[in-house]
């Protein structure tokens, strides 16, 4: 046999072994990971992952999740300008726990001492009892994992979103916080070669912790002119917690009403502030009514609903409507 042929055969053999090896590894990791001996896993474990590293370290493998989290409010819960102002330069001790949690376990957390700039980060939410807790029963060669059903439950979020959790519970709606704020897509949990190929695709929850959008579908309005009065009602039809909702933030909805006469001149105006801190936010599926007495003839009412988040002074228009008698 020619040397080149022999070399080719050898390479083919190695290739076959490699493919078979990868196939076996794929099978073991995804289907029969309980067959993998603990001692084999010990060899590939990265011990520093269990020493509460910063979020950047997790991004070496969980790149997509990291980038999503980076865009979330959770990643800036400690460095947010509005938070720093409200907590008097972070001197109010009562304000630390939920903004720099040590570990989330279903109760109000305690504040941590290290890596505070990372805010509410991977380790706070996932590292419990020496393992990465998550929704899946799986094997992750670099670190031990533990399937914990709490991760798909609202109570998990309720550790800190205590008031919102209470509001949600009272509605009796089944959709969890994660259903709406961490919508799932089929994807890989890791992006690092070759781990990304060896692990099957799974459902991944969006770590952007989406804020949620409001439109005409969500907040319905009814209004009428009747005997020198203008009656208006608002209904939060879709969001199973108050709108807006908050723990210590102060998000608001402003309702502006301008009354015009036949000449198009303003004859009166009214304003309502719908805010959780003032206990005036819109409850789920329950009409809230307002009544205004009119002193002059009115030809139309212009109604504008604006939303202002907890972390900004900017207001965005949700909708605008005109009502005529």
């Amino acid at each position: 046999m020619k040397l080149s042929t022999r070399l080719l055969n050898l390479l083919t053999a190695i290739g076959c072994f490699a493919i078979a090896g990868i196939a076996v590894a794929y099978f073991l990791i995804n289907e029969k990971f309980e067959w993998i001996p603990e001692s084999a896993l010990e060899l590939v474990r990265e011990k520093e992952l269990l020493e509460r590293p910063d979020a950047k370290r997790c991004s070496e493998c969980h790149k997509d999740i990291y980038e999503a989290w980076k865009e979330s409010r959770h990643s800036i819960s400690w460095i947010s300008k509005t938070y720093i102002e409200a907590s008097e330069n972070r001197s109010k001790e009562k304000c630390l726990a939920c903004h720099i949690p040590e570990s989330v376990t279903g109760e109000k957390p305690s504040p941590r001492l290290d890596r505070r700039d990372d805010g509410i980060y991977c380790v706070s939410c996932h590292f419990v009892n020496g393992k990465m807790n998550g929704p899946y029963d799986l094997v992750a060669p670099p670190h031990p994992t533990h399937r914990n059903p709490d991760y798909v439950n609202s109570r998990f979020c309720g550790s800190c979103h205590q008031k919102t959790f209470k509001e949600w519970k009272e509605t009796g709606v089944e959709d969890t916080c994660q259903n709406c704020h961490m919508p799932r897509t089929k994807d890989r949990l890791t992006q690092k070669f070759p781990l990304s190929l060896l692990h099957k695709q799974k459902w991944v929850g969006s770590h952007k912790f989406l804020h949620g959008d409001l439109s005409e579908k969500d907040i319905l309005m009814e209004a009428e002119f009747k005997n020198n009065f203008f009656n208006l009602s608002l209904l939060n039809k879709t969001v199973p917690h108050k709108v807006p909702t908050a723990d210590n933030g102060d998000p608001r909805i402003y309702l502006y009403i301008t009354f015009l006469n036949a000449a198009g001149e303003q004859v009166d105006q009214a304003k309502e502030i719908l805010a959780p801190q003032q206990e005036t936010a819109l409850p789920f599926n329950k009409e809230v009514r307002f009544r205004y007495r009119l002193f002059d003839p009115v030809a139309q009412a212009i109604i504008v609903l604006k939303y202002q988040p907890a972390w900004s002074k900017e207001r965005v228009v949700i909708w605008e409507k005109i009502i005529r008698p």
Partner: peptide, 21 residues
């Protein structure tokens, strides 16, 4: 009244329970 009620929004700047309201 609306100015007085606005004071309700200040409690959460120092307090972490709604009970105080």
């Amino acid at each position: 009244k609306s100015q007085f009620m606005e004071l309700k929004s200040t409690c959460s700047k120092c307090h972490t329970t709604d009970d105080v309201k």
